[in-house]
Amino acid sequence: MRQNDPDAIFELKNVSYSYLGKIEALRDITLQIRRGEQVTIIGSNGSGKSTLLALLDGLIYPSSGQFFAFNHPVDERLFDSIKDNEFRTYFRTKVGFVFQNSDIQLFSSTVFEEIAFGPLQMELSPEEVKARVEDIMEMMQISKLRDRAPHTLSGGEKKKVCIATVLVNNPDVLLLDEPSAGLDPRTQLWLVELLHELSHAEKTVITATHDLEIMEMISKRSIVMGEDHRIKFDDTPRNVLSNYELLMDSNLVHEHMHIHGKTVREHLHGHLHEHLHEHGAGDA
């Protein structure tokens, strides 16, 4: 008999997933994420980070193994059954997903309509929808964009709108796929501060990234995915960053990079000098 953990948001037991039944993306993943955790999932491109987030969001289902969300089994047969309509609705209001590519997520004519779409599906009154949208736009500092078409926005503005479309529904869990990709330094700092605010509000925040620069700033737990699509390490960000062999083996750094505190620095100049010296070019 399975013992329920009241603080468990997600639990995966020996979960594997293959695209088209052939292309392996996740292998034998056993993992629990509890309420209020701030977690980063790190790994090189193709390691399975985005697939794991998609599974946690109920967009795909395990090829094998068991997946529980809020102590409820989630698989294609159960999640899509008529009797599970109530749980599916509950799940969709509790879990929000911010995609890596903002253009995939944006489809409405204006920013206001984009953010209002989710609350409108919740059968709220027009007044309450308007109040929610106004509040979240002010919080995200995007009120001036309300009548703009999303496709005309900058990359950072699009990211803010995407996050607003999720936060307006007040989810308990926020899943973010490479949220810092392509952001300018000011918007990246804004993102870090926002994630801190969400953690103080006891939201569960799970971020997939290969950006080692921000990992320790936005999470207290880091899960390292290997190129074999398995979990290689699950510990604090500091212990992950101090494990150079792990980072090398996971293809997150290479032999000519090293870490100073939170920052990964590349010694191209030193490496080039050594290379030239070894080949005699430095004597020219």
Rank of each mutant, 00 (worst) to 15 (best):
37 E>F: 10
38 Q>Y: 02
38 Q>E: 10
38 Q>N: 08
39 V>D: 00
40 T>D: 03
40 T>Y: 02
40 T>L: 03
41 I>Y: 04
42 I>K: 07
43 G>E: 02
43 G>D: 01
43 G>W: 09
45 N>P: 08
45 N>C: 12
46 G>T: 01
46 G>H: 05
47 S>P: 04
47 S>N: 05
47 S>H: 03
47 S>I: 03
47 S>L: 10
48 G>S: 01
49 K>Q: 12
49 K>F: 09
51 T>P: 08
51 T>L: 01
52 L>Q: 03
53 L>V: 04
53 L>E: 08
54 A>H: 13
55 L>P: 01
56 L>Q: 03
58 G>V: 00
58 G>Y: 00
58 G>D: 05
60 I>N: 09
60 I>P: 11
61 Y>F: 15
61 Y>V: 09
61 Y>Q: 04
62 P>R: 00
62 P>Y: 06
63 S>E: 04
63 S>H: 06
64 S>E: 14
65 G>L: 07
65 G>I: 06
65 G>T: 06
65 G>Q: 07
66 Q>T: 13
67 F>I: 08
67 F>Q: 00
67 F>V: 04
69 A>T: 02
69 A>N: 02
70 F>V: 00
71 N>E: 12
71 N>V: 01
71 N>D: 03
72 H>L: 10
72 H>T: 07
73 P>E: 14
73 P>L: 06
74 V>G: 07
74 V>T: 01
75 D>C: 08
75 D>G: 03
75 D>F: 09
75 D>Y: 02
76 E>T: 11
76 E>P: 01
76 E>S: 14
76 E>I: 13
77 R>L: 14
77 R>Q: 14
78 L>G: 10
78 L>K: 12
78 L>P: 08
78 L>Y: 15
79 F>R: 02
79 F>G: 10
80 D>L: 15
80 D>W: 13
80 D>F: 13
81 S>E: 06
81 S>Y: 05
83 K>M: 09
84 D>P: 00
84 D>R: 06
84 D>S: 11
84 D>N: 11
85 N>M: 13
85 N>C: 12
85 N>K: 12
85 N>P: 05
85 N>Y: 05
86 E>I: 11
86 E>T: 14
87 F>S: 07
87 F>W: 09
89 T>I: 15
89 T>H: 05
89 T>Y: 08
89 T>G: 01
89 T>N: 09
89 T>W: 06
90 Y>Q: 14
90 Y>C: 03
90 Y>N: 07
90 Y>K: 14
91 F>L: 02
92 R>G: 04
93 T>N: 10
93 T>V: 12
94 K>W: 12
95 V>T: 02
95 V>I: 14
